[in-house]
Design a protein around this nucleic acid. Structure first.
Length: 701
DNA sequence: CATACATGAATTTTT
DNA sequence: TTCATGTATG
């Protein structure tokens, strides 16, 4: 969190300094969890562990990356580099690369992605029905997450469908063994098998890691917990488990993919000396928001007692909005954004937030398809947005490579694009040459591309380097010329393919990737990209944003459009846009102003016709609501549909039971009058402080 | 019988 | 948006 306190609070301190035994940190939403983890890493280093002896495990690569970044800020880049901060899966790969042979894997095993798995399953089950194969894949993965093999699965199968799935699983296992391949689940399961069966290996890995930290512990599945145990437990001394699990039972929202809250229940049973430390002080949200969150989650039976509180004032009440249909709801969300935007509201912690930006807003919803209407209305209102989790095609390395070329064609003075294009693929132009070129362009205030043809540069470089540079420059010019004059999808595609062939891009992919399959999949992305551009050159009649475009475009024109998109995307997190996200994808994030959209029975809690609503399911849905509420710092708008269009008729919408559970009307009403006075005073004080700060800042400028 | 087009419905996600 | 199913037509 950006606004974490300058020093650690007592609970955080306790968590950081508990080094000698197992520790469970129950980190409520916005309670400074990452601070605890990074400070604990620093403390462990201080206590004498080497960086490579500290393992911090996360669920996503992104989380791992962020944690390493945060750790770097605290312990310095040198120590941070050697810390083992990785996902469960990459840790598993590490174990298997080193010791896979001990569980019957050859040195070069391959890892199947989920498309590969689907293919194998279709094949093994002689099935052309993709949906069925996908159901098998799902079921099998869940079984593997529980540590079951095909035999155990067959015994556990509840119905005929599951029996079939279990039989397919047996064939699937045989195929994987024959191919020397593993799936994602095996990356956890096989290392576990290794540590359980091989004393020597276990001793080695337990020796290697002096302390293991697990982030988002509530999301672990049964096999992941066993792996953790195998990594840290001494066979003859249970108490010596040196690990820190950090999680929040109230934010466990991944039960449907195998995460089990049992892992939290079992922790104190399995580790009698476990130190349980709740972090209850929240540094994120205002009182109204926090109270609504606490009220909702109070409806769940609790494993551990925990109630969030904060030193911030009550802030704005939660706004409840009732809408007539999804379109209306989207309009209300837009109005909410427009109403707050540009205001200089104070944040929950009293800091002056400055002008409210688009990026201060998020609209959260239960299911992806809900984003559609929102996108339409945001576009109509000219509000920039990004859909989180939307797999950004443009983020892929191979696409970025090609985009660099396109950008260079559009604007030859685009130096970053030049640097990427000139080295992709490698063409004998190295650091030395580019260094000289950069020096030269800096000195004469010209772009790298301009510098390239300069006479006086030739004097400073060898003939070979100059030759390669000139050849590159000439090629770019030629390509630019042709791109300027090529239109129509057929011709465009031909030109683009020729270009790829000229620069040897396919070969480059196969050379730089050690797995042939990975290279092939990257190449197929490239072909998709080419088709996409070519289609745009074809000038079909398309309707976009209300305008009809029927012009055939040249390759260069399309490249221009793309460069604009890219330059916007390259600003990355800094771009000032509203976030649209599912509730699931929003976990761990926060915004000053949040809209929860579609808070209706049927959607949240979600009701499916296929599966029955069990108490466990309902509880997970409630936690999802809790996660949504606690994303907001200052302002929360909860929106529900009173009516909803279904086909041609309008049906009534039922507000979610979670809305009543927030007890919005009682909030503040049951507040002690003395507390109320105290609160108002505090709010005045922070406001005054904010004004003073602003004035000071003004004078400073 | 096969293909083309329209209509409607839609959990949640990472490795 | 995508994906699957249904209808109409060749």
């Amino acid at each position: 969190m950006a606004d974490a306190p300058a020093s650690l609070n007592p609970a955080q301190l306790e968590a950081v300094h508990h080094l000698r035994g197992p520790c469970l940190v129950l980190a409520g939403a916005g309670s400074g969890k990452t601070r605890v983890i990074t400070h604990k890493i620093a403390r462990l280093l201080q206590a004498g562990l080497a960086p490579k002896q500290i393992a911090a495990i996360t669920f996503t690569n992104k989380a791992a990356q962020e944690m390493r970044e945060r750790a770097k800020g605290l312990v310095g880049p040198k120590a941070a580099k050697d810390l083992v901060i990785s996902t469960f899966h990459s840790l598993g790969v590490r174990l298997l690369r080193e010791d896979g042979q001990r569980v019957g894997l050859k040195e070069q095993f391959s890892i199947l992605d989920s498309d590969d798995v689907l293919g194998v399953l279709r094949d093994a089950g002689s099935c052309s029905d993709n949906a069925l194969a996908r159901r098998w894949q799902w079921t099998i993965s869940l079984w593997k997450n529980q540590g079951l093999d095909s035999e155990a699965a067959l015994r556990a199968a509840k119905d005929a469908d599951e029996q079939v799935a279990a039989r397919v699983m047996k064939l699937y296992e045989e195929r994987l063994a024959a191919y020397q391949a593993v799936d994602f689940d095996d990356l956890i399961g096989l290392p576990l098998k290794l540590l359980q069966r091989d004393e020597e290996a276990r001793a080695k890995w337990q020796e290697r890691f002096g302390h293991v930290l697990v982030d988002e512990y509530q999301d672990t599945n049964a096999v992941q917990y066993e792996l953790l145990k195998a990594l840290v437990s001494h066979p003859d001394d249970r108490r010596r488990g040196l690990f820190t699990a950090v999680g929040d039972d109230d934010q466990s929202i991944y039960g449907w993919r195998g995460a089990t809250i049992d892992n939290l229940k079992r922790l104190p049973e399995d580790w009698p000396t476990l130190k349980v430390i709740p972090l209850e002080q929240n540094y994120r949200s205002t009182g109204h928001i926090l109270r609504a969150a606490n009220n909702v989650i109070a409806g769940n039976p609790k494993l551990f007692e925990k109630k969030l509180w904060s030193e911030f004032g009550d802030g704005d009440p939660v706004r409840l909005v009732e809408c007539d249909g999804e379109e209306h709801e989207a309009e209300r969300a837009v109005a909410f954004i427009q109403g707050l935007r540009g205001q200089g509201g104070a944040l929950a912690d009293g800091r002056q937030g400055g002008q409210t930006k688009f990026s201060d807003f998020a609209v959260l919803y239960r299911a992806n398809h809900q984003s559609r209407v929102l996108e339409q209305k945001l576009r109509a209102a000219q509000i920039p947005y990004k859909v989180s989790g939307g797999t950004s095609f443009f983020d892929r390395a191979e696409i970025k490579d090609l985009c660099a070329w396109l950008r260079l064609l559009v604007n030859q003075d685009d130096d970053p694009a030049f640097l990427r294009a000139v080295t992709t693929p490698k063409r004998g132009i190295g650091h030395q040459t580019l260094g000289k070129l950069g020096e030269f362009s800096g000195k004469w205030k010209v772009s790298l591309f301009e510098a390239l043809f300069s006479e006086s540069l030739a004097a400073q470089l060898g003939p070979k380097a100059i030759g390669s540079l000139h050849e590159f420059g000439r090629y770019v010019n030629e390509l630019e010329h042709r791109a300027r004059h090529t239109q129509g999808s057929e011709d465009a595609k031909a030109l683009l393919l020729e270009w790829l062939k000229d620069i040897g891009y396919e070969q480059h992919l196969y050379d730089s990737e050690d797995s042939e399959k990975l290279a092939a999949s990257r190449w197929s992305n490239v072909m998709d990209f080419i088709d996409w551009i070519a289609k745009r050159c074809g000038g079909e009649i398309t309707q976009e944003g209300g305008n009809f475009e029927s012009e055939r475009q040249t390759v260069l024109q399309v490249a221009q459009t793309i460069s604009v998109i890219i330059s916007l995307a390259e600003r990355g997190d800094e771009q000032d846009v509203v976030t649209l996200s599912t509730l699931h994808a929003s976990k761990g994030l926060e915004w000053p102003h949040v809209v929860l959209a579609g808070v209706n029975e049927g959607l949240l809690p979600f009701k499916s016709d296929a599966e029955e609503m069990t108490p466990q399911r309902l509880e997970e849905e409630r936690r999802l609501m809790y996660v949504g509420i606690t994303r907001a710092r200052s302002t929360l708008m909860v929106s529900t549909l009173r009516r909803r269009k279904k086909g041609r008729e309008t049906v009534a919408g039922i507000p979610s039971r979670f809305i009543a559970e927030m007890k919005l009307n009682e909030a503040g009403a049951n507040e002690d009058p003395r507390e109320r006075l105290k609160r108002l005073r505090a709010e005045l004080a922070t406001k005054a402080a904010g004004v003073a700060e602003q004035q000071a800042a003004h004078r400073g400028r």
